[in-house]
Amino acid sequence: MYKRLWEENIQWLLVGWCLLALFLRPGWLPFGLGVAVWAILLYVTAPGKFWSLVALANIDRNKLEAHLRKAVSFQPASPNPYISLALVTAYKKNWAEAISLLETAAQKPGKRLAPKIRNVLAVCYRETGKLDQAQTIINDLLKEGYADGKVYYNLAYINYKAGRPQEALQAAEKARSFNLSDPDPVLLTAKIYFEQGDYAAAKDNYDWCIKHLSWPVESYYWLGRCELELGLITQARDHLATAVERITSDPELSDVPPEEAQKWLDEANRLLAADKSVDPENLTLEPTPETDPNQS
């Protein structure tokens, strides 16, 4: 317990020395020597904190991760280095390692992990299929009165993975109420509607996402799929063509393989070619009063 307090508060010695030097004005050389003594004390007594601070000074993600791993290798009493490394590994979707790091952090003596970090642990459990453990964390957070859009989105996704679509839709709606511009709960809502066969509702949600995402990629694919199901073949062809182009150029931005998107684009083109009522020389959507720029 005392070791954790020391590791988490040693920086105040430096702050105190700076304030004292400001009052005494000992000169730059004594001041620099005092800072050097503090740095040596930090390195010797709290190496985990030392390497965590070094990590924070790095912009390069690989170096940041390497320094955090070095910090954790000293088995610090403070959970902070473990949490920082867990966030890095979770970002890379190394869920199992992130769980191990966060569980270790939670066992450190002192106060509990912050609600935001516990929600991250619930995400990691969710992504590794440990839905009961994830649900338990979310329930505890809600009982404690801690709830924000991320918690409810996590709850929505847990319900979705557990096969409870209605509960997932309710939680996604609650998540959206915290931030009306957040596309994540809308994307999940659209996904659920699509799987339920409510293609019109799914289309509305994907339309919204495309208008609010800075660079929509996969949403164009699912919007095109909805339009195919609704018989809007020309619109589907156009949106699937956009999806193929963007998924091919940025495959990491989509879980849909380029080949899958191309398959449905080919299907849209086949349906258009088979539709005798469509002029093969002009397959663009006719403008409506809402979209025609010539309408006043």
Rank of each mutant, 00 (worst) to 15 (best):
Y2I: 12
K3T: 12
W12G: 09
L13G: 11
G16S: 14
L19F: 11
L29G: 04
G32W: 03
L42K: 08
L42W: 11
P47Y: 10
I59R: 14
N62C: 06
K63D: 10
E65K: 15
R69G: 11
F74D: 05
A77H: 05
A86Y: 13
V88T: 10
V88E: 15
A90N: 11
I99T: 09
E103V: 14
A106E: 15
K116H: 01
I117E: 15
R118E: 03
N119Y: 05
C124L: 07
R126D: 04
I137F: 06
I138F: 04
D140M: 11
K143H: 13
Y152V: 00
Y153L: 15
N154H: 03
A162K: 13
Q170G: 04
R176P: 00
N179S: 15
L180E: 11
D184M: 07
K191H: 15
K191D: 15
E195C: 05
A200Y: 06
A200F: 10
A202Y: 07
Y206C: 04
D207I: 02
C209A: 15
H212C: 00
E227H: 01
G231N: 04
I233D: 00
D250E: 14
E252R: 14
L253D: 07
D255A: 14
V256C: 07
V256S: 05
A261P: 12
W264R: 05
L265M: 02
E267C: 02
A274F: 05
N282V: 03
E290R: 12
D292R: 03
S296M: 11
S296A: 09
